[in-house]
Each structure stands twice: as structure tokens, then as C-alpha cells.
């Protein structure tokens, strides 16, 4: 049985103009004056790993190590420059939730739109509106534009939509802390339920403590390369002692 996530020798590099040229006029002037300062960025360099069902795979590393880039590659947002990524089963990307929501739309409209953006069937989403608002605790404001929502309500609603499935692959960027204390406990319970439901989980976090408690395996990235890969405790201890 193949693993849900396979990342084989993935490299992502792109050209970056350091001068951050933003207009045609600037670009033309710079070309004439031969001032173009183009540089190749290696965001990821020869990264390979697999994540099995029921496994919680932690990714650590300093800022700019390529953690977020890796998440985006697994979530299919960025195509790898070379190498291969295979994902089996439905993916739930828990990366900055609610970015497709529009404050002018009602909660109901937002739920259906956001769900469809996450790749779910709009018809199915229409039926899921009630349980989703109920879980988020906003059932009294279903047909109200979400611009009148507090940021906590917005966060709860987005979390509720994003977790309203049983994904085979779960990609989590940073710890999701939304809402008040009671909701945090509730959302943590739901995350645990998803994680323990047999899906393959990749978690990126700066909180080593949290990863130590839940991760089964871990990877330490540094400037786009794997510095360590293996048992969670070993990798995390290695990362901690590196300062």
C-alpha cells in the first residue's frame, strides 16, 4: 500500500529580481542601464520523504528554511521545479484559514463559496451549512453579512468549514488558535480527532514543545535542505540543541 504523501527529490527554485522591479517602465529603464540584478533562489533543494497513514510528521527549521514552501508544494499551490510529489486522497490544507471569505457575503454564502474553493461540491456544501454554523456557534447569524462578525467568529467559522471533512491528508501550518478558551479546547479536540482518524498529517510549527507531544516523525529543514530526518524526539532534540 503506497503512502498518502510521497515527496521525491523535490527542488523549487525561481528567479528573483533583488531590485523588486514592479513596473514595465522601471524594467525597461533598468534593462537599458544594464542594472538587472537577477538571482536564483533555492527555496527547496533535493527534499525527499514519505508520510504514512496515521503518522504525524513535524517540520521544523529557522525562518526561510522552506517550511511554508514545502506546505504549498504538498497542497498543490506551487509546482516543484524538479522532482515529484504524489498525494493520495483528499487534502485539507489548514493554511491561513478563511482567505477566500468575503465580508460582504453572508455566512451561508461564504460557507458554500469557501467549501467549493477547497474542492468540495457546492451541492454538498449547501447541506452542510447547518452543522457548520452550529459547530462554530454562529447559528443565529447565518444570513447576516460576515462584515458584522468579530474576528473570533470569523476564525471559528473558517475552522469549522475547513475541518468539516474526513481528509486522508492534513497539512497544518502553525498551531491554529482561534476564538476563546472554550473554543480552543473544542478545536483542539477536533484536530486530534482528525489527526487520529488515520490521516497522514504534516505539521509545521515553531512550537517544539507541541510537536514533541504529538509528532511521530520529524524533519529539520535548513536553507531548503534536509538537515535531519527521522524519529521525532531525536530530530527535535537535535534542532533544539543547535540553538
Amino acid at each position: 500500500m503506497s503512502n498518502p504523501i510521497e515527496v521525491r527529490d523535490v527542488t523549487l527554485r525561481y528567479r528573483l529580481d533583488k531590485a523588486n522591479v514592479g513596473t514595465i517602465k522601471e524594467a525597461a529603464l533598468r534593462t537599458i542601464r544594464r542594472q538587472r540584478t537577477v538571482e536564483w533562489i533555492h527555496a527547496l533543494d533535493g527534499v525527499s520523504f514519505e508520510v504514512a497513514r496515521g503518522e504525524i510528521f513535524g517540520v521544523v527549521g529557522p525562518n526561510g528554511a522552506g517550511k511554508s514552501t514545502l506546505m504549498k508544494i504538498i497542497a498543490r499551490v506551487l509546482p516543484p521545479t524538479t522532482g515529484r510529489v504524489i498525494v493520495r486522497g483528499q487534502v485539507a490544507p489548514m493554511i491561513e484559514l478563511g482567505s477566500g471569505m468575503n465580508p460582504e457575503l453572508t455566512a451561508r454564502e461564504n460557507i458554500i463559496l469557501y467549501g467549493a474553493m477547497l474542492g468540495r461540491d457546492p451541492k454538498h456544501m449547501r447541506e452542510r451549512v447547518e452543522p457548520i454554523v452550529e459547530w462554530a456557534g454562529v447559528e443565529d447569524f447565518v444570513d447576516v453579512p460576515t462584515r458584522s462578525y468579530s474576528s473570533g467568529m470569523m476564525g471559528r467559522l473558517a475552522f469549522s468549514v475547513a475541518t468539516d471533512i474526513e481528509p486522508e491528508v492534513l497539512v497544518v501550518d502553525e498551531v491554529l488558535s482561534v476564538g476563546d478558551k472554550a473554543f480552543r479546547a473544542k478545536s483542539q479536540a477536533r484536530m486530534n480527532q482528525l489527526i487520529n482518524g488515520g490521516s497522514a498529517v504534516v505539521v509545521v510549527s515553531h512550537s517544539i514543545e507541541m510537536l514533541k507531544n504529538m509528532a511521530t516523525r520529524a524533519m529539520w529543514l535548513d536553507r531548503g535542505r534536509i538537515k535531519m530526518l527521522g524519529d521525532a524526539n531525536e530530530v527535535l532534540s537535535g534542532y533544539l540543541t543547535s540553538g
Partner: peptide, 29 residues
């Protein structure tokens, strides 16, 4: 269903065909 490949970065995009399939597949969105 569990082992269905949802995404394989090596599968070649067939220019034009892939996009028009997407227009149809995502008509709900």
C-alpha cells in the same frame, strides 16, 4: 477511494485540454 492519486506533479499538463477540462470540472465554483 483511499488510494486514489489526487495529485501527481509528474502528470503532464496537456496544454489547452487540461484547462478546458478544469473549466468544466469547476463549473460549480
Amino acid at each position: 477511494a483511499e488510494s486514489t492519486v489526487r495529485y501527481d506533479s509528474d502528470i503532464l499538463r496537456r496544454p489547452l485540454i487540461t484547462e478546458f477540462q478544469n473549466f468544466w470540472r469547476f463549473r460549480g465554483l
